[in-house]
Design a protein around this nucleic acid. Structure first.
Length: 344
DNA sequence: TACGCGTGGCC
DNA sequence: TGGCCAAGCGT
C-alpha cells in the first residue's frame, strides 16, 4: 500500500497549522470544524501557508462561525482581506457564507457535489473540504498533487493538458481509510519534500517507488507550457488630503481588478500612457519616483500626484481620518499612500 | 478553453 | 531586477 507509507510519514511529520487537527487527534475520532477548513482552503487558493496564517487568525477571531461571517458588513470583510490578494475570493466568501445560512441552516453540506455548487468552491476546494472536514474519500488535486504525481509516475506531458492524467493517477492512490489525512499528507509532502526546486528525495517516503527519482528527472517535472512575458502598464494616481486628515478614496467596481476594494482616484492603466485628469482641481505636486507593482498578468508603473485640499469640495466624498486605515487598502494602494506620505 | 485575477518570498 | 511559484475559481 503506497498510501500507508505516506500516512506513516505524515503521522511523524505533519505540520501544525491553525486550522488543522493533528493526525493523532483525527485517528482518535476528532474532525475539524468545516467552517475553519472552508475558510482556510479559500485563503490557501494560490496563496502560501505563511501568508494565510495571520489572516486566518484575524478572521476566526472576528467571525468565529459562518453565521457570524454571514452577518458581517461587506466593507469590514473586504478590509480584513486587504493585502491577501485575489479579492474575488473575499466577495465569494461572503456570498457563500450567506448561502450556507440561508439555504443550509448554517451547516456546510457534507458531500462534494453540493459543496461545489457554492460560490468560490471549485473542484479542488470541494474535494478538500469533503476529505479533510468529513473524511470522504475524494481525490484532492492541487499544484502540490500535480507535481508529486508527475514525478511519481515520471509523466513528461506538460501542464495544464496533463491535469487529467495526473488526476487519474492521484485517484488511483487515494485510500478508503484516512482519506482526509492522506489528502493533507500529499500536500505536505509537496510543500516540504517534493518541492518545485531541489526536491529532497533522500527524505521522501516514496523514494523507492518514484519513477522520476529513478530516472533523474524529478527536478524538471512537472513540465509546463512557456509563459507569456508580462507587459508593462502605466498610470497616474491622485492622493488628495485635507488638513483634518481626511483623504479622497473611492470604492472600485465590484468586478475586475481589485474589485470592490478601496483605492485612490486615477487614470486607467494602459500600456500607452494617457493624459491623466485629476479628480478635483488643486495644486497637484508630483511625488518623486514611481510606484512599481506587479500583478498576475502585467507590471505597473504609477506616477503619484499629491495635493493639499482645503477649499470646499462639495461633490466629493472624503474619508475621515478616523475611518482611514492604510491596512484596509490593497497592497498597490498602500504603496501609493506611502509615497504620498513621504512627499508631504 | 483560455484568460483575468494579487501578493510576497526566493533565487 | 525579474521570473517563478503558491492548498484555483469564475467566466
Amino acid at each position: 500500500m503506497n498510501s500507508t507509507e505516506l500516512l506513516n510519514w505524515y503521522d511523524l511529520h505533519a505540520r501544525e497549522l491553525p486550522w488543522r487537527v493533528s493526525p493523532a487527534a483525527r485517528v482518535a475520532g476528532q474532525l475539524p470544524d468545516p467552517y475553519r477548513i472552508w475558510l482556510s482552503e479559500i485563503m490557501l487558493q494560490q496563496t502560501t501557508v505563511a501568508a494565510v496564517k495571520a489572516y486566518f487568525l484575524k478572521f476566526t477571531a472576528a467571525w468565529p462561525t459562518v453565521v457570524d461571517l454571514a452577518a458581517a458588513e461587506d466593507a469590514d470583510v473586504m478590509a480584513a482581506w486587504a493585502g491577501l490578494g485575489y479579492y474575488a475570493r473575499a466577495r465569494n466568501l461572503l456570498k457563500c457564507a450567506r448561502v450556507i445560512v440561508a439555504e443550509h441552516g448554517g451547516q456546510f453540506p457534507a458531500n462534494r457535489a453540493a459543496l461545489q455548487n457554492l460560490p468560490g468552491i471549485g473542484p479542488y476546494t470541494s474535494a478538500a473540504i469533503a476529505a479533510i472536514a468529513f473524511d470522504h474519500a475524494e481525490t484532492v488535486v492541487d499544484g502540490n498533487v500535480e507535481r508529486v504525481m508527475a514525478r511519481l509516475f515520471d509523466l513528461h506531458a506538460p501542464l495544464p493538458q496533463a491535469k487529467g492524467a495526473l488526476t487519474s493517477y492521484a485517484a488511483s492512490l487515494t485510500p478508503p481509510a484516512r482519506p482526509g489525512d492522506y489528502a493533507q499528507a500529499v500536500m505536505d509532502l509537496g510543500a516540504t519534500i517534493c518541492t518545485p526546486k531541489s526536491p529532497r528525495c533522500a527524505l521522501c517516503p516514496w523514494h523507492d517507488i518514484c519513477a522520476a527519482r529513478k530516472a533523474g528527472t524529478a527536478a524538471e517535472l512537472p513540465k509546463k507550457l512557456p509563459k507569456v512575458k508580462k507587459p508593462t502598464r502605466f498610470g497616474t494616481a491622485y492622493v488628495a488630503r485635507r488638513s483634518d486628515g481626511a483623504v479622497l478614496l473611492e470604492q472600485r467596481p465590484e468586478r475586475g481588478l481589485l474589485g470592490g476594494m478601496l483605492g485612490w482616484p486615477g487614470s486607467e492603466w494602459r500600456e500607452t500612457p494617457l493624459d491623466a485628469i485629476p479628480p478635483i482641481q488643486a495644486d497637484w505636486v508630483e511625488a518623486p519616483g514611481e510606484v512599481r507593482h506587479t500583478f498576475t498578468h502585467f507590471h505597473l508603473r504609477l506616477r503619484v500626484m499629491v495635493a493639499q485640499v482645503d477649499a470646499p469640495q462639495t461633490n466629493q466624498t472624503f474619508t475621515a481620518a478616523e475611518n482611514f486605515r492604510p491596512a484596509d487598502l490593497p497592497t498597490v494602494m498602500r504603496k501609493i499612500w506611502s509615497m504620498a506620505e513621504a512627499e508631504t
